[in-house]
């Protein structure tokens, strides 16, 4: 990537601002649908940052997987789950939020001190740039072969498991009466005191 230094700085600033603003929106906005869309904004601005970091392939993967799959999945989840309900307010919720915010600021201060105080061993060697894709492919089939193969087992399992959990059980008519208790843990159920089920 051969952009002028100034362009790079400006785009870094814009992307950084976008990323922080959208991610704050994700955690602070009340409406979960807005949050989900802003999450897409976070992913896109991060992928822009990856392009600034000379990693075109990963930037594309970020857009494809995060925006194309994860974010859409989350939106689907919201649509399936979202019934317009206001959570019953908890008293003194702001106190907890303020405390958390202070802790997070402290953590950020600690991490930024660490980032600034450490003399990172910056390499002055050549940059892979567009050859990165070839390099990644080589890694996948040499020193990262084992995690690559294990990831396939993991994905298979996530697929099966997600289907098992999210699938609605369609049971034949004659079985329906008996299913209510059959599909619970053999242990006796505790009283469902907390949520009155309608």
């Amino acid at each position: 990537m051969n952009l002028a230094e100034g362009v790079q700085i400006v785009s870094l600033g814009v992307l950084a601002f976008l990323m922080l603003a959208t991610s704050l929106g994700v955690v602070l906005l009340d409406n979960i649908v807005y949050s989900a869309f802003l999450l897409g904004g976070v992913f896109i601005s991060i992928s822009g940052l990856y392009i600034l970091l000379n990693a075109g392939f990963v930037a594309a993967a970020q857009i494809l997987i995060y925006v194309g799959a994860v974010n859409v999945l989350i939106l689907f989840g919201i649509m399936l789950v979202n019934k317009r309900q206001d959570f019953t307010p908890v008293r003194n919720a702001w106190l907890g939020k303020a405390a958390t915010a202070i802790v997070c600021f402290g953590l950020f201060a600690l991490l930024s001190t660490m980032v600034l105080a450490t003399a990172w061993p910056i390499s002055s060697g050549p940059i892979a740039g567009d050859a990165a894709l070839v390099e990644i492919g080589k890694h996948f089939f040499s020193d990262y072969l084992l995690p690559f193969e294990l990831a396939s087992v993991l994905l298979l399992m996530a697929l099966i498991g997600a289907i098992v959990l999210a699938r609605r059980e369609f049971l034949p008519e004659e079985m329906v009466d008996s299913t209510d208790e059959v599909l619970t843990l053999p242990e006796r159920r505790r009283e469902l005191t907390s949520t009155p089920r309608q």
Binding site: L53, A55, W120, P121, S123, G125, I127, A128, E135, I136
Partner: peptide, 13 residues
């Protein structure tokens, strides 16, 4: 990966 390991890019992997 970009600043410390630009040639081997383990971070990208």
């Amino acid at each position: 990966s970009n600043y410390l390991d630009p040639m081997v890019i383990r971070g990208q992997v």
